[in-house]
Design a protein around this nucleic acid. Structure first.
Lengths: 263, 263
DNA sequence: CGTCTGACGAGAATGCTATTCTCGCATCGA
DNA sequence: TCGATGCGAGAATAGCATTCTCGTCAGACG
């Protein structure tokens, strides 16, 4: 990109010195990276062990057999450490998801599988690796929304592709695939760690299936048609169009043919 | 429910004493409630002032002109205080929303307005009253999901009604209105404080409109039909049905008639 | 080879909060 | 008036992140 052409007057030590310095530098940089990695690994272990991101910086330091001094020399703070892990995890997750998707064909199938996978990753487990998606992701959402956005980028790209493919195949419609992808992701991720109903409510947990149906067909009925009466679906679809129009144009009174599809 | 019939032998002081005690108690209880209220008010003010829930317990104490001692005598901790405010806010919000909805007719219109309102409440503002929906709600979601669920109950009830009404009017279809309502709420609330795109991405912010369209029609096209070609919508709807089936039953190859509705 | 520099370990010190504890005073009913 | 209970004032404790101080050591450089 920018191979500086060495100013003829100001710097009488053009490239060879630079190379020398760089060689000298390289070692240090390498050592630094190793150290950073050790912190990262230690933190990862702690997260796995304790199932939280509530570990102490001290613990990280001890586990990595380094010093506080060193820690703060390499990270701006605990926050930076977690952010690093977070971005890494999401990025890794995206590629992993891509692999798993490689065996699936059909735009909608692929999208569904993606939703399932994302939902699964976002579900709080006991001993798994999740807390980066759950715990921290959420805290971060409050304090540094933009960084979350950045971290989401790889996944968002993937989902955007999936949506676009579905659209191209005529199996989906949306004016802004990126936004839709974002909405799908958010729905899946947040719903996964959703509040279970307070006490004794049967609809206890909203599952990946529910999320998918919702994303697919929303409320207007298309998604749930997994075996219902043909005519019914057709009817609702027609109604829907009108309803949407009405919502925008302000009007009322509607056909009563309640058309549920399932029991 | 349980007017204890006064055991003949064990307690020779049946009702008069109880009444006396109760009279004596009442005053104390009343004073206690006033104190609690003062804490609550003070906290509310602080939130309004600072725009965060990051106030100190000390601050609450000072502002309410009471003592730390007293605070911890009435609350289990800062957490309880916030939780109280949170539940209150959500409950209040639900009734307020009900009022505003009273002027709107038409199931889908009502639902849409509700989504707008909820989205609006959940949007982080500078000086407004929101932080209870944003800040704290999210922290809470991590630490005490069940309490969040409880707090959401009033709103969930409202949205469930709205969805059910829409279904009854034949303007919507869903097997489990409650779940759908929950999904709609979550989508609106979380998307409102969503991460804006990292740097220079135009689709910067997902708005209430986008949320609504997504909830309404999901991805399968029904929602966006604000003026598209009749036949197109019809076609997509038909395709949709098949697609959904395929998703479940694992199959591939799809009709190519890309049918976008909007530009 | 001697020195100088910059990274590092060990750990004390600081700062911020929540939470608890200890003292007295005051209020209210008996 | 007496005693219990509520409460204000504020000191004490504790958990953590972050900073600072002091030596040490390895490599760079003349």
């Amino acid at each position: 990109m920018s191979v500086v052409p060495a100013e003829p007057v100001e710097s009488p030590e053009p490239a060879w010195r630079q190379r020398a310095v760089e060689r000298s530098t390289r070692a240090a940089k390498l050592r630094a990276e190793q150290r950073v990695q050790r912190f990262l690994d230690a933190a990862q272990e702690l997260i796995a062990d304790k199932g939280t991101t509530d570990f102490t910086v001290q613990e990280v330091v001890e586990r990595s057999r380094q010093s506080l001094r060193s820690f703060y020399q390499h990270f701006d703070g605990k926050h930076e450490l977690l952010l690093a892990l977070f971005e890494d995890a999401l990025s890794r997750s995206a590629t992993e998801m891509r692999e798993k998707l490689s065996t699936v064909t059909g735009p909608l199938d692929r999208l569904k599988v993606a939703v399932d996978l994302l939902y699964d990753s976002s579900t709080p487990r006991e001993g798994q690796q999740s807390p980066l998606f759950t715990d921290f992701a959420i805290q971060l959402l409050v304090s540094h929304p933009d960084q979350v956005a950045t971290a989401h980028l790889p996944l968002l790209a993937l989902f955007t592709e999936l949506v676009e493919d579905a659209v191209k195949a005529g199996q989906a419609v949306t004016p802004r695939p990126r936004r839709t992808a974002s909405l799908i992701m958010q729905t899946a991720m947040f719903t996964a760690q959703a509040p279970a109903a307070p006490v004794g409510a049967q609809p206890s947990r909203i599952g990946a299936e529910d999320v998918w149906e919702f994303c697919l067909g929303g409320i207007t009925g298309a998604g749930q048609a997994t075996g219902g009466d043909e005519s019914g679906t057709q009817k609702v679809a027609a109604t829907k169009k009108a309803a949407a129009k009405r919502t925008t144009a302000k009007k009322s009174a509607a056909p009563k043919g309640a058309t549920r599809t399932k029991a």
